[in-house]
Amino acid sequence: MTVIETDVQDGRPRPQRGAKVLDAEKVVMRFGGLVAVNNVDFDVHEGEIVGLIGPNGAGKTTFFNCLTGMYKPTSGTVRFYGEVLPPKPRAVVKAGMARTFQNIRLFGNMTALENVMVGRYCRTTSGAITSVLHGPKYRREEAESRARAAELLDFVGLGKSAELLARNMPYGDQRRLEIARALATDPKLILLDEPTAGMNPQETQQAMDLIFKIRDMGLAVVVIEHDMRFIFQLCDRVLCLVRGEALIWGTPGEVQSDPRVIEAYIGGSELEDDEDDA
């Protein structure tokens, strides 16, 4: 497949595309008789932002869950740096794949800082005994986690809100906090499920800047979104899913000009009522 690349995107230089991070081959996900994802190929490289679009019920989130180990695909393989990961969310996170949720799932009664520190959990190992004795390992890891969490909060622009309870934060900040929490797991690939849902244009612009910043760190990014303008400005490549099948897989320009995409969104919406976005 040919990918037409320009050197500049949204006013910033496009980094060199790196190694292949994620490679999904012929992924099928069946729930009983329903084929939610059918034979989809997909890949992401380091320093690349890939978009996933499709009308409601197209199977985007299901596909997402297959990639992140929440579901085990019925058939097909998902390789992360060439390795097939066990279908356990924890192993997937540990390998370097982190995600955010479509409906925000923060730990509401923890502070912003604590939320991000939970993300550090899988990168720290101090156990019960050293925690009780306040051993050197515990102190070092605790200080490190705290520092890294504070750094990440600054990175997403929440440095001043570190001690706010997550449930007391404004909506836009909660979205950014979720991204900070995901980044705290030191991912190579971050998957964002509708990161701008419910945001106003200004917040959307901020989110876009943030995602570019993440990409510029060399991470691979996958974004599910409904906001077409956002996706086409942001992504290097876009996969359009319709009724569980890959309709088109190409550059924003190619996808944008494909009449089938427009038809899927405007004409072929009979699935919308039958099935919620799983």
Binding site: T68, M70, P89, R90, V93, K94, A98, R99, F101, R105, L106, F107, G108, N109, M110, E114, V118, G119, Y121, C122, R123, R181, A182, T185
Partner: peptide, 15 residues
């Protein structure tokens, strides 16, 4: 605390 608040989210964060 994370488990008490949202077990699925905690798991997805590597807990």
């Amino acid at each position: 605390v994370a488990i008490r608040e949202d077990e699925r989210a905690a798991e997805a964060m590597g807990v």
